[in-house]
Measured scan of single mutants.
Amino acid sequence: ELSWTAEAEKMLGKVPFFVRKKVRKNTDNYAREIGEPVVTADVFRKAKEHLG
């Protein structure tokens, strides 16, 4: 699991709890794919757009 900024964690907190774990995993995987060592708010937004 990658490191997350406080802002990205806050955004994740707005995701319904029953899918939060999956969203975190998918976002981590997306960040790795694009070469990001940390999940930022920008990476979170891009993952959301990319993953739907």
Rank of each mutant, 00 (worst) to 15 (best):
A6G: 08
K22H: 14
K48F: 14
A8M: 00
K14Q: 11
A6F: 09
R32A: 06
E9I: 14
T27R: 02
R20I: 04
E7V: 05
R20D: 02
P16Y: 05
K21I: 13
R24I: 04
V38Q: 08
D42K: 07
Y30W: 07
L2V: 10
F44T: 02
R24E: 03
V19G: 08
V19A: 15
K22I: 15
E7Q: 07
K25F: 12
A6H: 09
V39G: 00
E9T: 09
V43S: 02
F17D: 10
A6Q: 10
E33Y: 11
D42V: 06
F44R: 02
A8I: 00
F17L: 14
L12T: 00
P16M: 04
K25T: 12
R24A: 05
V15D: 04
E1V: 11
D28K: 02
A8N: 00
I34P: 00
V23R: 04
T27A: 08
R45F: 08
P16I: 04
V43W: 02
V39H: 01
D28Q: 07
G52W: 10
E33A: 14
W4Q: 00
K10D: 11
P37F: 12
P16Q: 04
K10N: 09
R45N: 10
V23W: 10
W4M: 01
P37R: 10
R32G: 04
E36S: 11
F18W: 15
N26V: 13
K46P: 02
V39D: 01
A6C: 09
R45M: 13
T27H: 02
L51K: 09
K14M: 11
A6I: 12
H50F: 11
S3Q: 13
E9N: 06
R20M: 05
F44G: 01
I34Q: 10
K46D: 08
P16D: 06
E33N: 08
V38W: 06
E33G: 09
H50T: 08
V38A: 06
P37N: 12
D42E: 13
H50L: 10
F18L: 10
G35P: 02
T5N: 05
V23P: 00
S3G: 08
I34K: 08
E49C: 10
G35Q: 05
A41E: 08
K10F: 12
A41C: 07
A41P: 07
P37V: 10
P16F: 05
V39Y: 00
T5P: 00
V38M: 10
N29H: 10
